[in-house]
Simulated assay, not measured.
Amino acid sequence: MSTRARLSELGVELPSVAPPAGSYLPAVRTGSLVYTAGQIPLVDGKVVATGKVGAEVSAEDAAALARTCALNALAAVDALVGIDSVVRVVKVVGFVASAPGFTGQPAVLNGASDFLAEVFGEAGRHARSAVGVAELPLGVPVEVELVVEVA
């Protein structure tokens, strides 16, 4: 089954790629790898949540936002090379705007990781970094970037 068909089966539609907020590209290919820029939780071009995880945003809500970020990263991959060219997800890097004392960054990033496994099966399992930070762009609680291998 193609990735596009799998997304459809899951009831997921790839969004339009958000225009860059600075001097960078949404995704870049080098050889057989595509690196995405960090993707934030945008829906229809609008930030859907702000705040720190562990204070204004629950870990569960942040995990759902991480899924949105991963979907936005897949849209950037699709716009560059086509989603069906993805062979495997290699690495996920996630940043969590964390309230003091919040240490649940891995659980937050499971929102992205579990989604990628749903979409790509075993090829969606990946290496990952989950990093707690003081602030993220536009005050969002989570940001995700991907490295994928393409055919």
Score class of each variant (00 low, 15 high):
1 M>R: 12
2 S>P: 15
2 S>T: 14
3 T>M: 07
5 A>P: 00
6 R>S: 04
7 L>Q: 03
8 S>R: 14
10 L>I: 02
11 G>W: 08
11 G>K: 06
12 V>F: 01
13 E>D: 11
13 E>A: 15
17 V>S: 00
17 V>G: 02
19 P>W: 00
19 P>K: 03
20 P>R: 01
20 P>K: 00
22 G>D: 07
22 G>N: 02
26 P>Y: 04
26 P>W: 03
26 P>V: 06
27 A>K: 04
27 A>E: 08
29 R>L: 05
30 T>V: 15
31 G>Q: 06
32 S>R: 14
33 L>P: 01
35 Y>N: 11
36 T>C: 01
39 Q>H: 13
39 Q>M: 15
40 I>D: 00
40 I>N: 10
41 P>E: 10
45 G>F: 09
46 K>T: 14
46 K>S: 14
49 A>H: 11
50 T>A: 07
51 G>I: 04
51 G>A: 01
54 G>P: 06
55 A>V: 09
57 V>S: 05
58 S>M: 08
58 S>E: 06
58 S>C: 07
59 A>Q: 15
60 E>Y: 12
61 D>M: 12
62 A>F: 11
63 A>Q: 02
64 A>L: 14
66 A>I: 03
66 A>N: 03
68 T>V: 15
68 T>K: 11
69 C>H: 09
70 A>N: 01
73 A>W: 06
76 A>Y: 01
76 A>W: 03
78 D>C: 08
79 A>W: 05
81 V>H: 05
81 V>T: 07
82 G>S: 09
84 D>Q: 10
84 D>K: 11
89 V>F: 11
89 V>L: 14
91 K>N: 12
91 K>R: 15
94 G>L: 08
95 F>M: 14
95 F>A: 14
99 A>R: 11
99 A>K: 10
100 P>L: 10
101 G>V: 10
101 G>C: 03
104 G>C: 08
104 G>E: 07
105 Q>M: 13
105 Q>D: 09
108 V>D: 08
108 V>Y: 02
109 L>V: 06
109 L>K: 01
113 S>H: 06
113 S>D: 01
113 S>E: 04
114 D>C: 02
115 F>R: 04
120 F>S: 01
122 E>D: 13
123 A>L: 11
123 A>K: 14
124 G>P: 08
124 G>A: 12
124 G>F: 09
127 A>I: 08
127 A>S: 14
130 A>Y: 09
132 G>A: 15
133 V>K: 04
133 V>C: 06
134 A>E: 12
135 E>T: 15
135 E>P: 00
136 L>Q: 00
137 P>D: 09
138 L>C: 07
139 G>M: 02
141 P>D: 09
141 P>A: 12
142 V>W: 02
142 V>F: 00
147 V>M: 12
151 A>I: 05
